[in-house]
Protein backbone atom coordinates (compact mmCIF):
# COMPACT_ATOMS: atom_id res chain seq x y z
CA UNK A 1 0.00 0.00 0.00
CA UNK A 2 1.97 2.94 -1.30
CA UNK A 3 -0.62 5.64 -1.57
CA UNK A 4 -4.09 6.53 -2.68
CA UNK A 5 -5.53 5.05 -5.84
CA UNK A 6 -5.23 7.23 -8.91
CA UNK A 7 -7.67 6.91 -11.77
CA UNK A 8 -7.98 10.03 -13.85
CA UNK A 9 -6.90 10.92 -17.36
CA UNK A 10 -6.53 14.51 -16.13
CA UNK A 11 -4.01 13.43 -13.48
CA UNK A 12 -1.36 11.67 -15.59
CA UNK A 13 1.66 9.96 -14.13
CA UNK A 14 3.45 9.04 -17.35
CA UNK A 15 4.75 10.98 -20.37
CA UNK A 16 2.14 9.26 -22.56
CA UNK A 17 -0.63 10.24 -20.20
CA UNK A 18 0.65 13.82 -20.14
CA UNK A 19 0.47 14.07 -23.91
CA UNK A 20 -3.10 12.81 -23.84
CA UNK A 21 -4.02 15.23 -21.10
CA UNK A 22 -2.60 18.13 -23.12
CA UNK A 23 -4.66 16.97 -26.09
CA UNK A 24 -7.81 16.82 -23.97
CA UNK A 25 -7.30 20.39 -22.74
CA UNK A 26 -6.45 21.77 -26.19
CA UNK A 27 -9.60 20.19 -27.64
CA UNK A 28 -11.69 21.47 -24.75
CA UNK A 29 -10.31 25.00 -25.09
CA UNK A 30 -10.69 25.21 -28.88
CA UNK A 31 -14.17 23.71 -28.88
CA UNK A 32 -15.14 25.94 -25.96
CA UNK A 33 -14.08 29.07 -27.86
CA UNK A 34 -15.98 27.90 -30.94
CA UNK A 35 -19.05 27.17 -28.86
CA UNK A 36 -18.87 30.59 -27.25
CA UNK A 37 -18.54 32.30 -30.63
CA UNK A 38 -21.53 30.40 -32.00
CA UNK A 39 -23.62 31.24 -28.95
CA UNK A 40 -22.73 34.94 -29.20
CA UNK A 41 -23.61 34.97 -32.90
CA UNK A 42 -26.88 33.23 -32.12
CA UNK A 43 -27.71 35.71 -29.39
CA UNK A 44 -27.00 38.63 -31.72
CA UNK A 45 -29.21 37.08 -34.40
CA UNK A 46 -32.03 36.55 -31.92
CA UNK A 47 -31.91 39.98 -30.35
CA UNK A 48 -31.25 42.16 -33.38
CA UNK A 49 -34.46 43.72 -34.65
CA UNK A 50 -35.37 43.64 -38.25
CA UNK A 51 -35.22 46.90 -40.11
CA UNK A 52 -38.94 46.75 -40.79
CA UNK A 53 -41.82 44.46 -39.93
CA UNK A 54 -42.41 43.50 -43.55
CA UNK A 55 -39.08 43.78 -45.32
CA UNK A 56 -38.86 44.14 -49.04
CA UNK A 57 -37.14 41.26 -50.76
CA UNK A 58 -33.61 42.50 -50.92
CA UNK A 59 -32.63 43.74 -54.32
CA UNK A 60 -29.51 42.31 -55.80
CA UNK A 61 -26.68 44.48 -54.69
CA UNK A 62 -23.34 43.50 -55.99
CA UNK A 63 -21.37 44.94 -53.10
CA UNK A 64 -23.57 43.50 -50.31
CA UNK A 65 -23.65 40.12 -51.99
CA UNK A 66 -19.89 40.10 -52.32
CA UNK A 67 -19.46 41.07 -48.67
CA UNK A 68 -21.70 38.22 -47.54
CA UNK A 69 -19.90 35.76 -49.77
CA UNK A 70 -16.56 36.78 -48.32
CA UNK A 71 -17.80 36.48 -44.72
CA UNK A 72 -19.37 33.08 -45.24
CA UNK A 73 -16.38 31.86 -47.21
CA UNK A 74 -14.01 33.00 -44.51
CA UNK A 75 -16.05 31.27 -41.81
CA UNK A 76 -16.17 28.04 -43.78
CA UNK A 77 -12.42 28.28 -44.31
CA UNK A 78 -11.83 28.83 -40.61
CA UNK A 79 -13.99 25.84 -39.75
CA UNK A 80 -12.05 23.66 -42.16
CA UNK A 81 -8.73 24.89 -40.79
CA UNK A 82 -9.85 24.25 -37.19
CA UNK A 83 -11.07 20.76 -37.95
CA UNK A 84 -7.94 19.89 -39.92
CA UNK A 85 -5.67 21.32 -37.25
CA UNK A 86 -7.38 19.35 -34.50
CA UNK A 87 -7.28 16.20 -36.61
CA UNK A 88 -3.60 16.69 -37.31
CA UNK A 89 -2.90 17.30 -33.65
CA UNK A 90 -4.79 14.18 -32.71
CA UNK A 91 -2.83 12.09 -35.22
CA UNK A 92 0.47 13.57 -34.11
CA UNK A 93 -0.26 12.78 -30.46
CA UNK A 94 -1.33 9.28 -31.33
CA UNK A 95 1.84 8.76 -33.30
CA UNK A 96 3.99 9.96 -30.43
CA UNK A 97 2.14 7.82 -27.90
CA UNK A 98 1.81 4.64 -29.94
CA UNK A 99 3.94 5.00 -33.04
CA UNK A 100 7.47 3.87 -32.29
CA UNK A 101 8.09 0.61 -30.49
CA UNK A 102 10.19 1.18 -27.43
CA UNK A 103 13.69 -0.12 -27.86
CA UNK A 104 14.46 -1.50 -24.44
CA UNK A 105 12.32 -2.11 -21.40
CA UNK A 106 9.91 -4.65 -20.13
CA UNK A 107 7.46 -6.81 -22.07
CA UNK A 108 4.16 -8.00 -20.68
CA UNK A 109 1.38 -10.03 -22.17
CA UNK A 110 -2.09 -9.18 -20.89
CA UNK A 111 -5.00 -11.41 -21.83
CA UNK A 112 -8.57 -10.31 -21.20
CA UNK A 113 -11.00 -12.92 -19.95
CA UNK A 114 -14.61 -12.65 -18.91
CA UNK A 115 -14.12 -10.95 -16.36
CA UNK A 116 -10.51 -10.77 -15.21
CA UNK A 117 -7.04 -9.97 -16.53
CA UNK A 118 -4.31 -12.52 -17.01
CA UNK A 119 -0.83 -10.99 -16.82
CA UNK A 120 2.25 -12.80 -18.10
CA UNK A 121 5.69 -11.42 -17.40
CA UNK A 122 7.89 -12.34 -20.33
CA UNK A 123 11.58 -12.91 -20.04
CA UNK A 124 14.25 -14.28 -22.35
CA UNK A 125 14.97 -16.85 -19.70
CA UNK A 126 11.98 -19.21 -19.55
CA UNK A 127 12.44 -19.87 -15.85
CA UNK A 128 11.90 -16.20 -15.16
CA UNK A 129 8.52 -15.90 -16.85
CA UNK A 130 5.51 -16.10 -14.61
CA UNK A 131 1.78 -15.49 -14.63
CA UNK A 132 -0.32 -13.46 -12.28
CA UNK A 133 -3.73 -11.83 -12.47
CA UNK A 134 -5.47 -8.49 -12.11
CA UNK A 135 -2.41 -6.71 -10.80
CA UNK A 136 0.51 -5.37 -12.78
CA UNK A 137 3.72 -4.27 -11.11
CA UNK A 138 6.12 -2.12 -13.10
CA UNK A 139 9.35 -0.36 -12.21
CA UNK A 140 9.32 3.44 -12.30
CA UNK A 141 11.02 5.01 -15.31
CA UNK A 142 11.32 1.81 -17.34
CA UNK A 143 9.40 1.72 -20.64
CA UNK A 144 6.82 -1.04 -20.59
CA UNK A 145 5.31 -2.63 -23.68
CA UNK A 146 2.11 -4.53 -23.08
CA UNK A 147 0.88 -6.92 -25.71
CA UNK A 148 -2.88 -7.31 -25.50
CA UNK A 149 -4.92 -10.36 -26.37
CA UNK A 150 -8.44 -11.46 -25.65
CA UNK A 151 -9.56 -14.94 -24.84
CA UNK A 152 -13.29 -14.64 -25.47
CA UNK A 153 -14.86 -11.28 -26.37
CA UNK A 154 -13.56 -7.78 -27.03
CA UNK A 155 -12.24 -6.00 -23.96
CA UNK A 156 -10.41 -2.71 -23.63
CA UNK A 157 -7.38 -2.02 -21.48
CA UNK A 158 -7.48 1.39 -19.85
CA UNK A 159 -5.46 2.80 -17.02
CA UNK A 160 -6.41 6.46 -17.38
CA UNK A 161 -3.51 7.93 -15.42
CA UNK A 162 -0.89 6.12 -17.48
CA UNK A 163 -2.16 5.66 -21.03
CA UNK A 164 -5.02 5.77 -23.46
CA UNK A 165 -7.39 2.93 -24.19
CA UNK A 166 -6.47 -0.01 -26.35
CA UNK A 167 -8.85 -2.76 -27.35
CA UNK A 168 -8.17 -6.44 -26.81
CA UNK A 169 -9.62 -8.23 -29.80
CA UNK A 170 -9.86 -12.01 -30.09
CA UNK A 171 -7.63 -13.34 -32.84
CA UNK A 172 -5.55 -10.18 -32.94
CA UNK A 173 -2.74 -8.73 -30.94
CA UNK A 174 -2.57 -5.06 -30.05
CA UNK A 175 0.01 -3.36 -27.95
CA UNK A 176 0.33 -0.30 -25.79
CA UNK A 177 3.31 1.39 -24.19
CA UNK A 178 3.87 3.55 -21.20
CA UNK A 179 6.53 4.64 -18.75
CA UNK A 180 5.41 5.24 -15.21
CA UNK A 181 6.94 8.50 -14.04
CA UNK A 182 6.15 8.21 -10.34
CA UNK A 183 5.52 5.43 -7.88
CA UNK A 184 1.88 4.86 -7.09
CA UNK A 185 -1.14 2.63 -7.50
CA UNK A 186 -3.15 3.28 -10.62
CA UNK A 187 -6.56 1.79 -11.10
CA UNK A 188 -7.58 0.57 -14.53
CA UNK A 189 -10.84 -0.68 -15.86
CA UNK A 190 -12.14 -2.64 -18.83
CA UNK A 191 -13.46 0.03 -21.17
CA UNK A 192 -15.36 -2.05 -23.69
CA UNK A 193 -18.68 -3.58 -22.69
CA UNK A 194 -17.93 -7.27 -22.35
CA UNK A 195 -20.92 -8.88 -20.69
CA UNK A 196 -22.62 -9.29 -17.35
CA UNK A 197 -19.70 -8.35 -15.09
CA UNK A 198 -18.03 -5.72 -17.25
CA UNK A 199 -18.27 -3.28 -14.35
CA UNK A 200 -16.31 -5.61 -12.07
CA UNK A 201 -13.34 -6.00 -14.37
CA UNK A 202 -10.77 -3.71 -12.86
CA UNK A 203 -7.04 -4.00 -12.46
CA UNK A 204 -4.33 -2.23 -10.54
CA UNK A 205 -1.02 -1.04 -11.90
CA UNK A 206 1.55 -0.68 -9.13
CA UNK A 207 4.54 1.41 -10.09
CA UNK A 208 7.48 0.75 -7.78
CA UNK A 209 11.08 1.81 -7.54
CA UNK A 210 13.41 -0.65 -9.27
CA UNK A 211 14.68 -2.45 -6.10
CA UNK A 212 11.11 -2.90 -4.82
CA UNK A 213 10.02 -4.20 -8.17
CA UNK A 214 12.90 -6.67 -8.42
CA UNK A 215 12.10 -7.98 -4.96
CA UNK A 216 8.47 -8.38 -5.93
CA UNK A 217 9.37 -10.16 -9.15
CA UNK A 218 11.72 -12.56 -7.41
CA UNK A 219 8.92 -13.35 -5.00
CA UNK A 220 6.48 -14.01 -7.82
CA UNK A 221 8.87 -16.28 -9.73
CA UNK A 222 9.13 -18.63 -6.78
CA UNK A 223 6.67 -21.49 -6.50
CA UNK A 224 4.22 -21.48 -3.64
CA UNK A 225 5.68 -22.46 -0.28
CA UNK A 226 4.45 -25.58 1.44
CA UNK A 227 2.21 -24.60 4.33
CA UNK A 228 3.50 -25.13 7.86
CA UNK A 229 0.48 -24.52 10.05
CA UNK A 230 -1.98 -27.43 10.40
CA UNK A 231 -4.95 -25.31 9.28
CA UNK A 232 -3.22 -24.24 6.09
CA UNK A 233 -2.14 -27.82 5.42
CA UNK A 234 -5.76 -28.86 5.74
CA UNK A 235 -6.59 -26.00 3.39
CA UNK A 236 -4.17 -27.24 0.75
CA UNK A 237 -5.60 -30.76 0.99
CA UNK A 238 -9.15 -29.43 0.64
CA UNK A 239 -8.11 -27.16 -2.23
CA UNK A 240 -6.66 -30.10 -4.11
CA UNK A 241 -9.64 -32.34 -3.39
CA UNK A 242 -12.29 -29.83 -4.47
CA UNK A 243 -13.18 -28.60 -7.96
CA UNK A 244 -10.83 -25.61 -7.46
CA UNK A 245 -8.04 -27.46 -9.25
CA UNK A 246 -10.10 -27.84 -12.41
CA UNK A 247 -9.63 -24.13 -13.17
CA UNK A 248 -6.85 -22.71 -10.99
CA UNK A 249 -3.13 -23.23 -10.78
CA UNK A 250 -0.84 -23.00 -7.77
CA UNK A 251 2.75 -23.53 -8.87
CA UNK A 252 4.46 -26.07 -6.68
CA UNK A 253 1.32 -28.17 -6.25
CA UNK A 254 -0.52 -30.46 -8.62
CA UNK A 255 -3.06 -27.72 -9.41
CA UNK A 256 -2.11 -26.54 -12.86
CA UNK A 257 -5.22 -25.51 -14.77
CA UNK A 258 -5.20 -22.30 -16.76
CA UNK A 259 -8.90 -21.48 -17.03
CA UNK A 260 -9.08 -19.21 -13.99
CA UNK A 261 -6.53 -16.84 -12.47
CA UNK A 262 -3.19 -18.22 -11.29
CA UNK A 263 -3.31 -18.37 -7.50
CA UNK A 264 0.36 -19.02 -6.75
CA UNK A 265 0.76 -15.69 -4.95
CA UNK A 266 -2.84 -14.66 -4.56
CA UNK A 267 -2.27 -13.54 -0.97
CA UNK A 268 0.17 -10.88 -2.16
CA UNK A 269 -2.42 -9.14 -4.31
CA UNK A 270 -4.46 -6.21 -3.15
CA UNK A 271 -7.76 -7.13 -4.72
CA UNK A 272 -9.88 -10.18 -5.28
CA UNK A 273 -12.13 -11.01 -8.25
CA UNK A 274 -10.67 -8.31 -10.53
CA UNK A 275 -10.97 -5.36 -8.19
CA UNK A 276 -14.33 -6.36 -6.77
CA UNK A 277 -13.13 -6.89 -3.20
CA UNK A 278 -10.08 -5.90 -1.19
CA UNK A 279 -8.09 -9.03 -0.45
CA UNK A 280 -8.17 -10.29 3.10
CA UNK A 281 -8.99 -13.57 4.74
CA UNK A 282 -12.54 -12.43 5.37
CA UNK A 283 -13.18 -11.41 1.78
CA UNK A 284 -11.56 -14.62 0.50
CA UNK A 285 -13.95 -16.63 2.64
CA UNK A 286 -16.90 -14.54 1.44
CA UNK A 287 -15.88 -15.01 -2.18
CA UNK A 288 -15.46 -18.77 -1.75
CA UNK A 289 -18.74 -19.06 0.09
CA UNK A 290 -20.85 -17.30 -2.51
CA UNK A 291 -19.08 -16.12 -5.66
CA UNK A 292 -22.34 -15.72 -7.56
CA UNK A 293 -23.69 -13.46 -4.84
CA UNK A 294 -20.60 -11.23 -4.97
CA UNK A 295 -20.22 -11.20 -8.74
CA UNK A 296 -23.39 -12.59 -10.35
CA UNK A 297 -22.71 -14.27 -13.67
CA UNK A 298 -18.98 -14.70 -13.16
CA UNK A 299 -17.38 -17.97 -14.22
CA UNK A 300 -16.42 -18.88 -10.65
CA UNK A 301 -18.96 -21.54 -9.66
CA UNK A 302 -20.64 -22.03 -6.34
CA UNK A 303 -18.80 -24.87 -4.62
CA UNK A 304 -20.38 -26.42 -1.56
CA UNK A 305 -17.86 -26.31 1.27
CA UNK A 306 -18.39 -27.12 4.90
CA UNK A 307 -17.31 -24.40 7.37
CA UNK A 308 -14.03 -26.13 8.20
CA UNK A 309 -13.07 -26.46 4.55
CA UNK A 310 -14.10 -22.87 3.89
CA UNK A 311 -11.91 -21.58 6.67
CA UNK A 312 -9.01 -23.85 5.85
CA UNK A 313 -8.98 -22.96 2.16
CA UNK A 314 -9.27 -19.24 2.80
CA UNK A 315 -6.44 -19.49 5.33
CA UNK A 316 -4.34 -21.39 2.82
CA UNK A 317 -5.00 -18.91 0.01
CA UNK A 318 -4.41 -15.88 2.18
CA UNK A 319 -1.03 -17.31 3.15
CA UNK A 320 0.07 -17.61 -0.49
CA UNK A 321 2.14 -14.44 -0.33
Amino acid sequence: MVGPLVQSALDPHSPQGERLRDLIWIFTAVCGVVWLAVMIALAIAVWRRRASAAPEPSALERAAELRLTIIVGALVGMTAVTVLALTGLSYATQKRVLGRPLAAGMALLVTGHQWWWEVEYKDDEPARTFTTANEIHVPVGVPVTIRLRADDVIHSFWVPSLMGKEDLIPGRENSIRFTAARAGIYRGQCAEFCGAQHAHMALLVVAQEKPDFDAWRDGQIRSADDPNEPERQKGLAAFLAKPCVMCHAVRGTSAAARVGPDLTHVGSRMTLAAGTLPLSRGTLAAWLADPQGVKPGSQMPFVQLDPDELNAISAYLEGLK
Binding site: D152, V153, F193, C194, G195
Partner: peptide, 16 residues
Protein backbone atom coordinates in the same frame (compact mmCIF):
# COMPACT_ATOMS: atom_id res chain seq x y z
CA UNK B 1 -31.09 -7.53 -25.72
CA UNK B 2 -28.14 -7.26 -23.35
CA UNK B 3 -25.17 -6.92 -25.66
CA UNK B 4 -24.96 -3.15 -25.99
CA UNK B 5 -26.64 -1.09 -28.68
CA UNK B 6 -23.62 -1.62 -30.96
CA UNK B 7 -23.77 -5.41 -30.48
CA UNK B 8 -20.20 -6.37 -31.21
CA UNK B 9 -19.36 -9.89 -32.11
CA UNK B 10 -18.25 -12.12 -30.50
CA UNK B 11 -20.13 -10.81 -27.45
CA UNK B 12 -23.34 -10.77 -29.48
CA UNK B 13 -22.47 -13.98 -31.30
CA UNK B 14 -24.05 -17.35 -30.56
CA UNK B 15 -21.39 -18.37 -28.06
CA UNK B 16 -21.51 -15.44 -25.66
Amino acid sequence: PDVGWFAYVPLSGPEY
